[in-house]
């Protein structure tokens, strides 16, 4: 029914040329004066049981992409195919059905749990919405809590009694409640301390091994992405600039932005002297992205063509969008 390039049976979710523009309103009658090009034609595919990393700096559109992929934000263009079914335009009951199969874990474990609900209600909500009640619900919640390393006693407590790490465990328990096939992890560890971050990362890996979900790991922390994902895409101003297997990208980055990003990460080794590529200036505004290659004003290797024509993402498994290649 749907023509899909490279989409095989083991693809869980696929985004093709996904676009999201937010209107900028201004003037007296709040007319739309411009658009923020938050996600500007992003294509990825994630396999079953795979972790796909999406890295980029703040404002590059990675969070919007995650939300759009889940249909929490309506896309302005492109297609989303989930488990072989086009879900770009589905509505109502069909959408609710799909929601059961894809979930999201947010960055801030403090604002993602309703402070006025008990843990049983929070973790049980997705179950309740799927018609599970009473004793079944209770038992399932106990199972879920055990899966994420908490126990039955915690059921009647409120979120504010838990530490950041425990709260994130609760968010994960809620996300896996309906046995989803795919989970968007939106910076799940960036609000946590390193010792707790390791616990959560290990938990996520463990759950994936047991339950076989696909992950989209959105993060600005390159080391976390390297640790958890099999494939990585680097985003800059709403576009993917480089994509490929994790090892290849980290060992041999091709795009100048990826190179700079990798070299900028401080390494906890005082003897390590690296050739740091210092980028000048800030990330430009996504309202009026630069012409040609969006990275050209900050690129150390900029050529004439970069300013005029936008490079395409070339290559199959390993792809890069840069005129150097």
């Amino acid at each position: 029914m749907i023509e899909m390039e490279r989409a095989t049976t083991d693809t869980i979710i696929l985004a093709k040329d996904l676009k999201k523009y937010f209107p900028v309103r201004g003037g007296v009658f709040s007319r739309v004066v411009d658009y923020v090009h938050a996600v500007d034609g992003v294509s990825i595919d994630i396999k079953k049981g795979e972790t796909f990393g999406l890295v980029g700096e703040s404002g590059c559109g990675k969070t919007t992409f995650g939300r759009t992929l889940m249909r929490l934000i309506e896309p302005d263009g492109g297609r989303i195919v989930f488990n072989g079914e086009d879900i770009t335009k589905i509505k109502g009951k069909d959408l609710a059905e799909i929601r059961r199969e894809m979930q999201i874990v947010f960055q801030d474990p403090f604002s993602s749990l309703n402070p006025r609900m008990t843990i049983k209600k929070i973790v049980g909500e997705p179950l309740l919405l799927n018609g599970i009640k009473g004793k079944d619900l209770r038992e399932r919640v106990i199972d879920l809590l055990a899966l994420v390393g908490l126990n039955e006693e915690h059921m009647n407590r409120y979120p504010h009694e838990f530490s950041g790490g425990q709260r994130q465990r609760l968010c994960i328990a809620r996300a896996i409640a309906t046995n989803p096939k795919f989970i968007v992890l939106d910076e799940p560890t960036s609000a946590l301390d390193v010792s707790v971050q390791a616990q959560i990362l290990n938990l996520l890996i463990d759950l994936q091994n047991r339950l076989g979900m696909g992950y989209l790991m959105i993060s600005h922390d390159l080391s976390v992405v390297r640790h958890i994902s099999q494939r990585v895409a680097v985003m800059y101003l709403g576009k993917i600039v480089e994509k490929g297997k994790t090892e290849e990208i980290f060992e041999n980055p091709l795009h100048p932005y990826t190179k700079a990003l990798l070299s900028a990460v401080p390494v906890p080794d005082p003897d390590r002297k690296r050739n740091r590529i210092l980028l000048t200036g800030d990330v430009p505004s996504p309202v009026n992205p630069p012409s040609g290659c969006r990275f050209h004003p900050r690129c150390p290797y900029v050529k004439e063509i970069c300013k005029e024509k936008e490079p395409e993402l070339k290559g199959d498994e390993r792809s890069v969008a840069c005129w150097l290649y």
């Binding site: 609710a96 999201i104 947010f106 993602s112 997705p126």
Partner: peptide, 26 residues
């Protein structure tokens, strides 16, 4: 705008439930 409301949406909760169970008590 809080994330627990978004989480409820992601779980397929109805608007009525979101309004009365999640937003109003807070």
């Amino acid at each position: 705008e809080t994330e627990f409301v978004e989480a409820a949406r992601a779980n397929g909760a109805s608007s009525l439930r979101i309004a009365f169970v999640h937003i109003l008590p807070n």
